[in-house]
Nucleic acid binder design. Sequence first.
DNA 1: ATTTTTTACGAAAAGCGTAACAATA
DNA 2: TATTGTTACGCTTTTCGTAAAAAAT
Lengths: 283, 283
Amino acid sequence: MFELNQLEQLLAFAEYGTLSAAAEHLHLSQPALSRSMRRLEMDLSVPLFDHAKNKIALNENGELAVKYAEQIVREAKEMKESLVAHERARHTIFLGSCAPAPLWTLLPNLSALYPDMTITSEIRGLDTLQEKLLDKTYQLIALPYPIEEPGFASQEIGEEHLYFTLPSAHPLAEKKSLHLADLNGETMLLRPNLGFWTDIVKKAMPDTSFLTQDENAFDELVRFSVLPTFATDLALQRYNPPEGRVIVPIEDEAVNIHYYCCYRKNTLSKLTKLLQAKGKSKN
Amino acid sequence: MFELNQLEQLLAFAEYGTLSAAAEHLHLSQPALSRSMRRLEMDLSVPLFDHAKNKIALNENGELAVKYAEQIVREAKEMKESLVAHERARHTIFLGSCAPAPLWTLLPNLSALYPDMTITSEIRGLDTLQEKLLDKTYQLIALPYPIEEPGFASQEIGEEHLYFTLPSAHPLAEKKSLHLADLNGETMLLRPNLGFWTDIVKKAMPDTSFLTQDENAFDELVRFSVLPTFATDLALQRYNPPEGRVIVPIEDEAVNIHYYCCYRKNTLSKLTKLLQAKGKSKN
DNA sequence: ATTTTTTACGAAAAGCGTAACAATA
DNA sequence: TATTGTTACGCTTTTCGTAAAAAAT
């Protein structure tokens, strides 16, 4: 039988027109390529070239052979790429979340539980998350509600609550609590990549314009700004509380979020234990 | 890059389940196959097997690789078969005829004109002939009428006329000429593979039952039979006239056949000369 | 005990490069 | 004369088979 090697060489010849040119691009001596093509003719038991003394060209068979070779070589490359991708996927847990907070606990726990796996995560919209869990892009997603798909498990992994952080001089800074609507219309600062939190507050404060600032410069900006911004209880545990700001709870029921971790029941067997542990430790 | 060789070996392993069994069917030592599969894993930079001490089995990647390998190997075989077929076709003139007589002149002339080509011929129905000329199965066909397809040439190559051969004792044996209908209802003997002649006489003599006899035993049978049979002027030139038989011309216009040779104008360049020569020599 | 896979080692085969040759433009 | 393809020859690399070892049924 002939070999893929020879088909690639045939394609190189078809592309470059002469054995010398093709051999150079193949990093091969020209006599070697000449012999290899003769072998291909033998292996196929069909002449592929018109061999003149000083010129060689594809004949009718050769042209046909090139067509086949293109297809076969393409599929061979596809095979390798696909296998490499598949192998990578076998060693990767791809985690989607609706918000940053679930990742703070899930990522380190997953790393500890599956030390050989690469953990990749991203924050996406609720529809995207569910869709890509079903099509197996994600092995695991964090949602603000449980899903009911058969064959999937949903387990609560914690809750998060939203607060305003107001400058001390703000007119409402002394209130014990507020509604989102109370600040509707005021310009506010937002961290980027807050996931579905952004949707919630934009919906409840349609007249507010939100300024989004780079994550790294955000704290700096807040310190020297008089604009109100948000915080959550989980974020306040994780990061330093903003200086010179008053934290005011928000009473809207929509900002009391319970997170659920959703995944296929027959995958990630160690995950069940992780999630049961999750119910207790919320740091 | 990996090689087709290795893919075939992978398929053999997938089929036979163990390296030993696969190696035997591949006419290869088992250690060689073991190493070859390890090389395949290296070449693909992906593990394909679960290597246990004493057992080796395809893993998830391997199963996927087998699927790809099946396709690629199938196409590789297809490539070879297709090329061999194409090569054969390049050296073959496939000739279809509606009757035996045109072949008697066309075959030797084609052989002389194209000494490097294999000449293959068969007798088929008129519709089949035209259809397979158009789809390039035939390079050349002989029909009892010219065709009008654009791009095709039709040239008359001779004529043939049908006769009855009657036993001397036959009631009609002394007639100077007859019509087909005159013997309608009588049982007759027929050579096999007469092409469209069979259709002509069956149509004009619907009440006659025709007995077809093997070509080699036919002359023998005729000699000892009192059944009428047919001959043509061309057949009488070619073969010995039947003993003890009277040759009676048939007057039906339908049995005076002019043969036409039909072929693509841009192929068989030498053929034009042949056909012009054909008009003169009719042996 | 037999079967199966892997490792080790020497031999066979295949493939490559350099050089030389032939032919062409 | 420079370029192209084929042939010849020696060398390297690859691949193979046998033998031996390790492990499992």
